[in-house]
Amino acid sequence: MTEKIIHVALLLILPPLLFGVIGKTKAWFAGRVGPPLLQPYYDLIKLARKSMVFSRTTTWVFRAGPVVTLSAALIAGLMVPLGALDSPIAFTGDLILFAYLFGLARFFTTSAALDTGSPFEGMGSAREVTFACLTEPALFLALLVLAKASGSLMLTDLLHGPAEGFSSGMVAPLVLVGIGLFIVLLAETCRIPVDDPNTHLELTMIHEVMVLDHSGPLFGVILYASSIKMFVLGSVLLHVAFPFKTGEVWIDVSLFVLEILFLSILIGTIESVMARLQMRHVPYLLIAATLFCSFGFLLLVR
C-alpha cells in the first residue's frame, strides 16, 4: 500500500520539476541564472487563479481537450512502474491501453486546436498527427522487443524484465530500443530537435502552437499534462537505460528520482547544444528511431 501511495504522490507532484530542471540546465549553458527550479509550480498556481478567455469560435471540444489529455496521461502514469516500484494498476495487455491513451490525448489535443479555426493551430495539429504516424511504430517495436525479452504482456513485468535479469544476448537489442525510445520521448514531448518549446514564431511550432488559445486554468492543465507525459515516457525509458534495483523501497525511490532528474538534465543539455531540425527533416529522425527499434527486434528474432 505504501508503495502505491508513493507512486501516486510521485506521479502527481514530481512532473513539473522536470521542466524546472530543464530550464535551469539551459540557463546554466547560456550562462544565466535562470528561473528558480520550482518555477513551473508557481506558474501552475498562478494559472489556476486566473480567469479564462475563450474564442467565440470554440465549442465543448476546446474545453474537453485539456481535460481528456490530463486524464489519459494520469491513467497511463498509473500503469507504468516507477523505478523499482510496481505500478498500482497492472493487467495483461495494459501496454496497449498505455499506447492508445496517448492516442486519445492526441485526438483531443488536435481537435481542440482545430476548434479555434486558426490556421496556425491547424498547422500544429497537422504536424502532431503526422509525426505520431512515425513514432507509433517505433514505440510498438520497442514494446515488442521488451515483451519478447521479458515474456510478459504486463507493463510492470515487462519493464522490470525477467526476475533473473535480462539475458546477455539482450544488451544489443536493449541499447537499440533505448536509443529509439529516447527519440520517441523527444518527439512525443515536443523537445529539440523535433520541436522547440521556446520559439517565438508560430510557424515553426508543433505543440505550443496548438495551445495558443488556451488560457488560465485550462492552460495550466495542458502544461501539467505535458509534464506528466514527459515523466511517464521518461520512466519507461529509464527502465531500459538503467535496469538496476536494490530491493530497498526508499533507496529505489530516491534512485528513480535521481535518474529522472538526470534525464531532464540530459534533455536540457540536448536543447542547449543542438538546433531544431528543419521540419521536413524531422521524419528522417523518426524513421531512424523506427529503424533502430526494428534492428533490435530483428536481433531478437533472427
Partner: peptide, 23 residues
C-alpha cells in the same frame, strides 16, 4: 496495426475537425 491506429487518428481528426470545428 499501430501505424493504422495513428493514421486513423489523423484521418478522423481531419474529418471531424474540418467539418464540425472552426468557422
Amino acid at each position: 496495426l499501430a501505424m493504422i491506429g495513428a493514421l486513423a487518428v489523423a484521418c478522423f481528426v481531419k474529418l471531424f475537425g474540418t467539418v464540425f470545428l472552426g468557422t
